[in-house]
Amino acid sequence: MNWSKYSAPLSFYPLAGNMIPWFSALAALAMAVGLYIGLLVAPTDATQHDSYRIIFVHVPAAWMSMFLYVVMAIWAGIGMGLKARLSFMMAQAIAPTGAMFTFIALVTGCMWGKPTWGTYWVWDARLTSELILLFQYAGVMLLRTSIDDLRRADRASGVLALVGVVNIPIIYFSVQWWNTLHQGASVSMTAAPKMAAIMLTAMLLMTFGFWMYSIAVVLSRVRCVILERESQPAWGDPSSVPEVAEAR
């Protein structure tokens, strides 16, 4: 497979289109089975009772919010290093999905906090740093739209995205570094999961579903971005000149 061919946005467009149905199908399947196990099969929790079931959307959304931010920053970095337009378009396409998962993680967290802590919100390190992540996504998106020159907009929002990666380990380790009301990690890369196998299965299925959903949605959005950018009149295109003259 000739990879360099697909780094051209207009060549990538049909390839992305062919991949979307597969990722959508995987997402739907994983989420359906995950919801079935999580809501209908898994037993109640000994300490948090049935409020714990929020974990099946909260943790996958929170993981995706951090993961997508890192992927967005990596694409922005590749874009700046290789001057690759498609990489910047990928970064642009990821931001809204990442922001949405951050929002879902925050709102479902409020819904979980009320019955378990007695409050929807508390300014502890985990919640505050995740809220900052939402502002970071908003900042990256707003900075892009506030600059008219596409190349400058790409680079400026790319730099902001890269600098902001510093917040991701802060979010992840906040429950260890500070004394937070938010509970510690139930699943980590270094220790055995502190969850029953059936609950873990449902949570991982939902995570996989959200992941596949994100790929499908980002590919779909990058196709929109490609069309929007490629259909802009190029500099020197005579058809664009009268419009500018008219506007003045």
Binding site: L39, H49, D50, S51, R53, H58, I104, T108, W112
Partner: peptide
Amino acid sequence: EMGGYGLYVWTSFIIT
């Protein structure tokens, strides 16, 4: 009813 937590559980899933 979700063991009395229906409001919180269903709000979370519906918002998602």
